[in-house]
Measured scan of single mutants.
Amino acid sequence: MDTYKLILNGKTLKGETTTEAVDAATAEKVFKHYANEHGVHGHWTYDPETKTFTSTE
């Protein structure tokens, strides 16, 4: 398992979190669920070199 990072740049919520996942697709599902639960619906990007997802509203 690898550690993946999420950076949230929402209108009402900003911050970072991490998750352990078997691959990027699994981490993306976890992070999108997390963002949706916190009302963040933004544009998603992923940097495979740093294993970092960013959601920007």
Results as ranks from 00 to 15, higher is better:
1 M>D: 05
1 M>N: 08
1 M>S: 08
1 M>E: 06
2 D>M: 14
2 D>R: 11
2 D>N: 14
3 T>S: 06
3 T>F: 07
3 T>K: 08
4 Y>G: 03
4 Y>K: 02
5 K>C: 08
5 K>F: 12
6 L>I: 03
6 L>E: 03
7 I>V: 10
7 I>P: 01
7 I>C: 07
7 I>Y: 06
7 I>L: 06
7 I>K: 05
8 L>T: 04
8 L>F: 11
8 L>S: 02
8 L>H: 03
9 N>A: 08
9 N>Y: 13
9 N>C: 15
10 G>E: 03
10 G>P: 02
11 K>M: 13
11 K>P: 12
12 T>D: 11
12 T>V: 11
12 T>G: 09
12 T>Q: 10
12 T>P: 03
12 T>L: 11
12 T>W: 14
13 L>K: 10
13 L>I: 14
13 L>G: 07
13 L>E: 07
14 K>A: 08
14 K>R: 12
15 G>F: 15
15 G>H: 14
16 E>F: 14
16 E>S: 10
16 E>C: 15
16 E>M: 11
17 T>R: 11
17 T>C: 15
17 T>H: 14
17 T>F: 15
18 T>M: 08
18 T>H: 09
19 T>G: 02
19 T>H: 07
21 A>W: 02
21 A>E: 03
21 A>S: 06
21 A>Q: 06
21 A>I: 01
22 V>I: 13
22 V>F: 12
22 V>C: 11
22 V>K: 13
23 D>M: 02
23 D>V: 01
23 D>H: 03
23 D>P: 01
24 A>H: 07
24 A>R: 10
25 A>G: 08
25 A>M: 10
26 T>Q: 12
26 T>V: 07
26 T>Y: 07
26 T>K: 05
27 A>R: 01
27 A>W: 02
28 E>I: 08
28 E>R: 06
28 E>W: 15
29 K>V: 11
29 K>H: 10
29 K>M: 12
30 V>C: 07
30 V>R: 09
30 V>Y: 15
30 V>I: 15
30 V>G: 03
31 F>Q: 00
31 F>I: 00
32 K>S: 05
32 K>M: 10
32 K>Q: 10
32 K>R: 15
32 K>F: 08
32 K>L: 10
33 H>T: 13
33 H>F: 11
33 H>I: 15
33 H>D: 13
34 Y>F: 11
34 Y>C: 05
35 A>L: 12
37 E>T: 13
37 E>A: 13
37 E>C: 12
38 H>R: 14
38 H>Q: 12
39 G>A: 05
39 G>Q: 07
39 G>E: 05
39 G>H: 06
39 G>Y: 05
39 G>C: 06
40 V>M: 08
40 V>Q: 04
40 V>C: 04
40 V>W: 13
41 H>M: 12
41 H>K: 12
42 G>K: 02
42 G>E: 04
42 G>L: 14
43 H>A: 13
44 W>Y: 03
44 W>M: 09
45 T>C: 09
45 T>S: 12
46 Y>H: 01
46 Y>E: 00
47 D>T: 06
47 D>V: 05
48 P>V: 08
48 P>L: 06
48 P>G: 06
48 P>F: 07
48 P>W: 07
49 E>H: 11
49 E>V: 11
49 E>L: 13
50 T>M: 06
50 T>S: 10
50 T>P: 01
50 T>K: 07
51 K>L: 10
51 K>I: 01
52 T>L: 04
52 T>G: 00
52 T>W: 01
52 T>F: 02
52 T>A: 04
53 F>R: 00
53 F>I: 00
53 F>M: 00
53 F>K: 00
53 F>V: 00
54 T>H: 07
54 T>L: 07
54 T>S: 07
54 T>A: 06
55 S>F: 15
55 S>K: 03
55 S>M: 15
55 S>N: 13
55 S>V: 15
56 T>N: 09
56 T>W: 10
56 T>R: 06
56 T>K: 06
56 T>P: 03
56 T>I: 09
56 T>L: 07
57 E>W: 07
57 E>K: 03
